[in-house]
């Protein structure tokens, strides 16, 4: 009980059943685990294993069929849409595989967006967005539109957007899925650095075993169930650089 306060995310017997016509597909089956504050957690599994669904459930994008999801002591599955939106504004950040930037907006405006929804005054949020974009190394591309940037740069914008409002948890769904090996590593390092600097909790979904090595904790998902949970000590985090290079080659 003593370390319960540390548990930022807690899943209890979470089930998600899809109905496809007459068939019922159990995407997430009786999953329970906890994630501690400041932890880099990886949901690992092959495609179709239900890991993405699990992430969506945690983010409140999808509703659970049964079970409980408690994030920062709040019961996500019971919250109204409005409360969820507010909760996301204040606590959650998202990084997507396909970046999901708004093409009509510049990098700066894209990063500003979560702050716009949070009603942060213009001048303040411009400053925040500029700062974080500089931090991710895009200080010179503030006025560029997504289409004018490379994949890696777009994902940096995505990361900046996820971190700009100072969330306590960032969800990343295959953040390097569309990137080449070199950029993948850069992006992963960036996420990891930013998380560590602010003591954020990261929940990342990947099917790449070696990307999973970045994590403090790997939760193996198979057929919608938790297969096993690996926890690493501090030393295990430090991967030899050569190995990472190789991993990335497999990804594409």
């Amino acid at each position: 009980m003593s370390n319960k306060a540390e548990n930022v995310i807690e899943l209890k017997n979470v089930k998600k059943i899809y109905r496809m016509g007459k068939e019922r597909i159990c995407a997430v089956d009786n999953v329970s685990f906890t994630i501690k504050k400041g932890e880099f957690c990886c949901l690992y599994g092959v495609s179709g294993s239900g890991k993405s669904t699990l992430l969506n459930l945690m983010a409140g994008i999808e509703k659970v069929t049964s079970g409980q999801i408690i994030i920062k002591g709040r019961h996500i599955h019971k919250m109204s849409e409005r409360a969820l939106a507010k909760f996301r504004q204040n606590n959650l950040g998202f990084v997507f595989q396909s970046y999901n930037l708004l093409n009509s907006m510049t990098a700066l405006e894209n990063v500003e967006l979560p702050l716009v929804f949070k009603r942060v005054p213009t001048r303040k949020r411009k400053k925040m967005a500029r700062n974080i974009l500089t931090k991710v190394g895009l200080g010179s591309r503030l006025k560029h539109k997504p289409k004018e940037m490379s994949g890696g740069q777009q994902q940096r914008v995505g990361i900046a957007r996820a971190f700009v409002s100072n969330p306590s948890i960032v969800f990343a769904d295959e953040p390097t899925g569309n990137l080449d090996s070199k950029t993948s590593k850069e992006v992963m390092d960036l996420i990891k650095d930013m998380a560590k600097a602010n003591n954020l909790t990261i929940v990342m979904v990947t099917h790449d075993r070696r990307l999973a090595e970045y994590a403090d904790k790997i939760i193996h998902i198979f057929d919608g169930k938790v297969e096993k949970i690996e926890e690493f000590t501090k030393q295990a985090e430090e991967l030899p650089p050569e190995e990472t290079q190789e991993i990335a080659t497999d990804v594409s």
Binding site: A59, R82, A85, F87, R88, F94, L102, L113, F117, K118
Partner: peptide
């Protein structure tokens, strides 16, 4: 549609 989805995920309330 996609834009709306992104906005929602980023914390835009439905009313807005």
């Amino acid at each position: 549609t996609k834009e709306i989805g992104i906005m929602k995920v980023l914390g835009c309330v439905i009313k807005d």
